[in-house]
Design a protein around this nucleic acid. Structure first.
Lengths: 350, 350
DNA sequence: CATGATGTTTAGATCGATCTAAAAGGAGTG
DNA sequence: CACTCCTTTTAGATCGATCTAAACATCATG
C-alpha cells in the first residue's frame, strides 16, 4: 500500500548570519553595506570596468557577508539579451543525457546558460517547447524531436535540431550522416564475411529513415540486395528484444544484425544470449550511437559512434551565430561523419 | 576526424503576421490596441475579477491579434511568489528520469512549474543548485544528492531531498525505507531456500548505508550472520559486472545476490549469463528501484520497488506545504514502505 | 439631493537588476 | 587659478509585468 509514515525529527531553526527579515538580499542591500550606490555595486558584481580596485574589494566583501546572489529574473528582464538557450530532450534516452552534458560544457565556454525541458509520456513536445519560450530563451535546441514544427515559433527565435536532417522545417539541423553510418556497419560485417545481415530499424524516429536507407544502399552495393531484411522497431531496448524473438522464432538465424540504436542492440544481445546464442560466435551485432553503457566490458558493443561533443558544440554554435547574425541567413545543415567503433560483439562469420 | 560538412538548404524568411518591428508584443501594446489601461489588460490576461465581460472580450481579441504572450520573466519579478520548484538530478540515472516525469505531473496539478538542473561530470552538485537558486525557485528538490548541504541555503528556501534519510541536514526528506527494502529481498531469497546471499552495495551513495544495514540485519535475523558478505560497489552497471567477475574468480559462487540498484543487478545479470551461469538456475539476483528496464521481458528482474510516483508527489507536497506554512516547522521525514516485485531473476535454490 | 454601495477602470509604485548620461573628484597644464 | 582630461561614482530611466489604492461611473436609498 505504500502509505507514508511521517515521523518528526530534529527541529530546525536556522537564521541567516545577516539579521535581515529572511528576505533575500538584493543589490541595494549590498550597496548600502559597502557604502556605495546601486550602480557601482552592479558594476562590481558583473566585473564591468569602472570601479577602483579598492571599491571592488569592499563591495565583494559586502556581497559575501550577505550571501548575495544576483536575481537572474531581474537580470533577464533588464538585459538586452537573456543569454539563455533552451533544450528540449527526453528524460529516458541515454544518448540525450550524453548530449546534455556536452551542451552544458559548450554553453559555459561562451557565457550562455541552459534551460532544460523534458519530454515525458505526460508532457508532449509542444508543452516542453512552450515552457522554453515563456522562459525567455533566445534560442532553442531540440534533441530528437519527432513532431513537425513550422514557422509559428521558428520565425521568432532560432531553432536548432539535433538528430535528424532538415525535413521540411526551416531550422538549422545538426546530425550525423546516418546513411553513411549504417553503411559503415554493413561494410564492417561484410568484411568479416557476413552476407545474411538484418536491420532492426527505428520506424519514424529521428534518423531512422536515413539509417534504413543507408543499410539498404550498402547491401545493394555489396550485391546483397536480395538478402536485405528490415525488422520493425522503435529504437528501444524492448524493440531489440522483440526483434530477437522474431529472429529466434523464424527458423534460421541471420549471421549479423545492424540495430537502430545501442539500446536496441543491447536488447537483442541480452535476449539472444539468454536463449543460448553465442554473440559474436553465432551472430554479430552492431549498435548505433555509442552510448556510455555500450563501452562497458560486459556489453562491449561494436557500434557506430555519434560524436556527442561535436553535435552539442555545433548546435550551440549554430544557435549563437544565428542570434548574433540575425535570423535572415539561410538555414544550415551540419552533417557529421560517423565513426565505426569495433568492440567485442562482432566477429568473423563461422 | 568528424569534420562538419556544411551544406546550404532552402532559405527561410518568416514574418510574424503582426507587422510590428519584430519586437515581441507587450501588455502595453495589447492595452493600447484594446483602448484600455495596462492595469485592465493585466486583469483580463490573468482572469482576475474586475473587468466587464465586454472589456474582457476586447482585450482578448487584441491579445490574439498581436500574438501576445505574457513575459514570464517580468511576471516572476513582480509576483509575490514565483510558483517555481527547482529540481536537481543526474542526467545518467534512469530512476531519476522516472522521478522527474512524476514531479512534472505532480506540480502541474497544483499550478507550479519546474526548473531542471542536471548534475554531470563537468557540472557538480553545487553548480547545479546555484543555477536553481538564481532562477528564483521558491523551493528545491534534490534527487540523489551525495554532498552534504548545510543551512547556508536551506534556511532561505525549503529543500526536500529524495533518496536518502536526513543525515544531519535540516531539510525535509522523502525516501523509501531502504533497510526494510533490503530486508524484503533477503526474506524472499531465504524463503526460496537460499543461505549464501551476497550484497553488492553502493558505497557512499544515497541510501546505500541503509540498504547495507538492512541486509546485514536480515541475515542476522535468519541466523545467517556468519555468511553475510558485502562486496563494494557504486550503484552502476559497471560495478555490477565487476562484482560478477569477483564472484566468478572467487571459486564457489553464492546462490543469491542482493544488488544495490537495478543497474547494478543488470550488470551482474549480463556478466554472469555471459560466463555461462544460469540465472536464476544457479544464482538468483534481486535488484532495487524497479526502473523501467527491469520490467523488460529479457531482463525480468526481481526487485524492490520504490514508488516513484509517491516519492515525487510527497516531495512536491512537502515543498509546497513548507512554502505556504512558512519555514518554522520542524523538518519532516517521509519514509515509504518498499514493495518486493517478484519476477524471473530469482528462483528456488537447487 | 446628499449619501452610500457597487462595479469598473486606472495612475503610479514596485519587483531587482542594467544602462545611460551626467556629476564628482583629482591630476596635470598653461 | 581656470581649464581640460581622465577616472570613478551616481541619479534616474528602464525592462514588462503585478499590486495597491484611489478615482470614476452608475444606481439605489433615506
Amino acid at each position: 500500500m505504500s502509505t507514508p509514515k511521517a515521523s518528526r525529527t530534529s527541529g530546525a531553526k536556522g537564521d541567516p548570519s545577516a539579521a535581515g527579515a529572511g528576505r533575500r538580499p538584493t543589490l541595494m542591500d549590498v550597496a548600502r553595506r559597502a557604502g556605495v550606490s546601486r550602480a557601482t555595486a552592479s558594476l562590481v558584481i558583473r566585473d564591468a570596468p569602472g570601479p577602483s580596485s579598492e571599491t571592488r574589494e569592499r563591495v565583494r566583501q559586502a556581497a559575501d557577508e550577505l550571501g548575495y546572489r544576483p536575481d537572474q529574473t531581474a537580470q533577464l528582464l533588464r538585459r538586452r539579451n537573456s543569454r539563455l538557450i533552451g533544450v528540449m530532450f527526453s528524460a529516458q534516452e541515454p544518448f540525450h543525457a550524453d548530449l546534455i552534458e556536452n551542451i552544458y560544457a559548450a554553453t559555459e565556454e561562451i557565457g550562455y546558460d541552459v534551460v532544460l525541458s523534458a519530454v515525458a509520456p505526460s508532457r508532449g513536445e509542444r508543452r516542453a517547447v512552450e515552457a522554453l519560450i515563456t522562459s525567455r530563451c533566445e534560442a532553442v535546441i531540440l534533441i530528437g524531436a519527432r513532431e513537425a514544427y513550422t514557422t509559428d515559433f521558428g520565425s521568432r527565435l532560432p531553432v536548432v535540431e539535433i538528430g535528424r536532417p532538415p525535413n521540411g522545417t526551416v531550422f538549422d539541423a545538426v546530425h550525423t550522416a546516418d546513411d553513411e553510418g549504417a553503411g559503415l556497419a554493413v561494410d564492417h560485417l561484410v568484411s568479416l564475411g557476413h552476407r545474411d545481415i538484418v536491420h532492426v530499424d527505428g520506424g519514424e524516429r529521428p534518423g531512422a529513415a536515413e539509417r534504413r536507407a543507408g543499410y539498404l544502399d550498402a547491401m545493394r552495393r555489396h550485391g546483397l540486395h536480395d538478402r536485405a531484411r528490415v525488422l520493425p522497431g522503435d529504437y528501444t531496448e524492448l524493440s531489440g528484444s522483440e526483434a530477437a524473438r522474431t529472429l529466434l522464432d523464424g527458423g534460421e538465424l541471420p549471421t549479423a544484425v545492424v540495430a537502430g540504436t545501442d539500446q536496441c542492440a543491447i536488447g537483442l544481445l541480452i535476449e539472444l544470449r539468454q536463449a543460448g546464442v553465442d554473440v559474436p560466435g553465432q551472430i554479430s551485432i552492431v549498435g548505433y550511437d555509442d552510448i556510455r553503457s555500450a563501452r562497458l566490458a560486459h556489453i562491449d558493443l561494436t557500434t557506430v559512434r555519434q560524436d556527442a561533443q561535436q553535435l552539442a558544440r555545433l548546435a550551440v554554435q549554430a544557435a549563437v551565430e544565428r542570434l548574433e547574425g540575425g535570423l535572415d541567413g539561410e538555414t544550415r545543415e551540419f552533417s557529421l561523419v560517423p565513426q565505426l567503433v569495433v568492440r567485442g560483439s562482432t566477429g568473423p562469420v563461422r
